[in-house]
Amino acid sequence: MDSAPVVIGFDGSPAAERAIRDSAALLGTHPALVVTVWEAGRSFAAATAPIVGLQPAPIMLDIRGALVAEAREQEVMQITAQRGAQLAREAGYADATGLAVAEDATVAATLIRVATERHSPGLVVGAHGHSRVAEFLLGSTSRALVARAPCPVVVTGPHGS
């Protein structure tokens, strides 16, 4: 068994759960690193954003509220990562660890960074099955991973595909 983990992008969605289950038969001899990613500082951006249109940012900032919201988001993401790791163990991965990461980078860039740092033999994500228009507007994490990842990428399709 290789000690480098397969990096699994996990957001708690049914597509992400399916990706864990479907990839275990192929990659389960490796340990898994189940990674949740969220945008760092989003709560602070919301506390300082203009309320309507071109209004300047409010003078009074709710920093305490932003700190509480940021801590809660981190806690939720850690719980999500741990739940994903448990699912990976149940699906048949040799071992699994959860990791919650807050970054300013995109989800794809963060997963690529983690996979590179860990010398991962592969990356796994689930496709959400967005329409082409939604994918164009929202971007596609799986497409970005396939194009730029330093290792093989397994993308599991949406349910029923």
Rank of each mutant, 00 (worst) to 15 (best):
E17Y: 01
P121D: 00
H128N: 06
A109K: 11
V124I: 12
M60K: 07
D62P: 01
I79E: 13
A69S: 14
F44E: 11
A19V: 08
V114W: 00
M77N: 14
G9E: 07
R118T: 14
A88G: 05
E135Q: 15
A91Y: 06
D2W: 03
A100D: 02
T141W: 09
P152V: 09
V7G: 04
E90L: 15
P58V: 04
R72V: 11
V52Y: 09
E17F: 01
L145T: 05
V101Q: 03
L67E: 14
T110C: 15
R118I: 03
P121R: 00
R113K: 15
P5Y: 13
P56T: 00
V155D: 02
W38F: 15
V101D: 04
H159R: 09
P150R: 09
R113L: 04
G41W: 03
R42W: 11
A46K: 11
S43N: 08
T48M: 13
S142N: 11
E117V: 12
G12A: 10
G129R: 01
H119Y: 07
H119Q: 13
T156R: 13
G41I: 03
E75K: 06
G41N: 05
V34D: 07
E90F: 06
V34Q: 11
A24D: 09
A40M: 05
P150S: 07
D104R: 15
F10V: 11
P58L: 04
S142I: 02
A149Y: 05
Q86K: 15
A102K: 04
V124D: 03
V35Y: 10
F44M: 10
A40G: 08
S120P: 05
R143Y: 02
S13L: 10
A19I: 08
A49H: 04
F136G: 11
A115G: 10
A96C: 12
G122A: 02
A45E: 08
R42S: 15
P150C: 06
D2S: 14
V154R: 12
G28N: 12
A134W: 02
R21M: 02
L145D: 04
G122S: 02
G139P: 12
A71S: 14
A46P: 01
V7Q: 07
E90V: 08
R83E: 14
L54F: 03
S120N: 04
V76G: 00
A57H: 00
P14E: 00
A46N: 05
V37Y: 10
G53T: 11
L87A: 15
L99N: 02
R18L: 08
A105H: 11
A96F: 06
W38L: 08
A32K: 13
L99A: 08
P152W: 07
D2K: 10
P121E: 00
P50I: 02
L99G: 01
R21C: 01
H130G: 00
A24H: 09
S140A: 07
Y93H: 11
G9H: 13
R21F: 02
R83L: 11
A4Q: 13
E17M: 04
G126W: 08
V35N: 12
P50N: 03
R18K: 12
M1I: 06
G157W: 00
A102N: 03
E75S: 09
L33T: 14
L61D: 01
I112L: 09
G157T: 03
I63V: 15
L61M: 13
D22N: 06
P56E: 00
A49Y: 05
A32R: 13
A4K: 14
V76F: 05
L27A: 05
M77I: 02
P31W: 01
A16T: 07
D104W: 09
V6E: 07
T116E: 07
Q82I: 02
